[in-house]
């Protein structure tokens, strides 16, 4: 039986390698587990690198197309942006650009919540992030066909 990670649990004993092979094989539950436990670990240790690792698996899980996984990815990106220091302007802008691109895609897909916050997020983002989001959105839509 698959057990979902609870972000409220203590992540000190979390071993991501246990789920790595399953996640690599495409198991969405393993990807979700690594993403959620990873972001919990990152928050607990203020480790931006762990947060970005968790974001990788959140991206994989979101790539399956489930709306909740996409929401989890947005939440993790928000936390990664918060963990980044003020000096890491480029990282923050990159995260903001990816978030903008994801939300714009969600808004296009009819998600009201995303549509509601899209303008607000864009207004509070830097012009650089907005410009970069356009390219990322194009890259996300590019299926290589």
């Amino acid at each position: 039986m698959t057990t979902r990670a609870n972000t409220g649990e203590r992540s000190g004993s979390f071993n991501p390698f246990r789920y790595l092979s399953a996640a690599a094989a495409g198991d969405i539950e393993a990807q979700r587990t690594i993403a959620e436990r990873g972001i919990a670990h990152a928050v607990e240790h203020c480790d931006v690198l762990a947060a970005m690792d968790a974001a990788v698996f959140a991206r994989l899980a979101a790539a399956h197309g489930m709306r909740d996984d996409q929401g989890r990815l947005l939440s993790i990106l928000a936390i990664v942006g918060d963990l980044a220091t003020e000096d890491e302007v480029d990282l923050r802008e990159s995260l903001a650009a990816e978030s903008l691109a994801l939300i714009s895609l969600l808004a296009d897909d009819g998600e009201e919540c995303a549509d509601q916050f899209l303008l607000s997020i864009a207004e509070h983002s830097t012009p650089t992030a907005v410009e970069l989001s356009k390219h990322l959105r194009a890259a996300m839509l590019d299926k290589g066909e």
Binding site: R4, N6, T7, G8, M66, R67, D68, Q70, G71, R72, L73, L74, S75, I76, L77, A78, I79, G81, D82, A96, S99, I103, L106, E111, C113, A114, F117, S120, I121, H124, S125
Partner: peptide
């Protein structure tokens, strides 16, 4: 924008029963 992003993410995740945390 991080709050707004977290709000959207949590709202989407809540639809599937996940506990919002962002």
């Amino acid at each position: 924008w991080q709050y707004a992003l977290a709000a959207v993410g949590d709202a989407l995740a809540m639809n599937s029963g996940y506990r919002p945390y962002a």
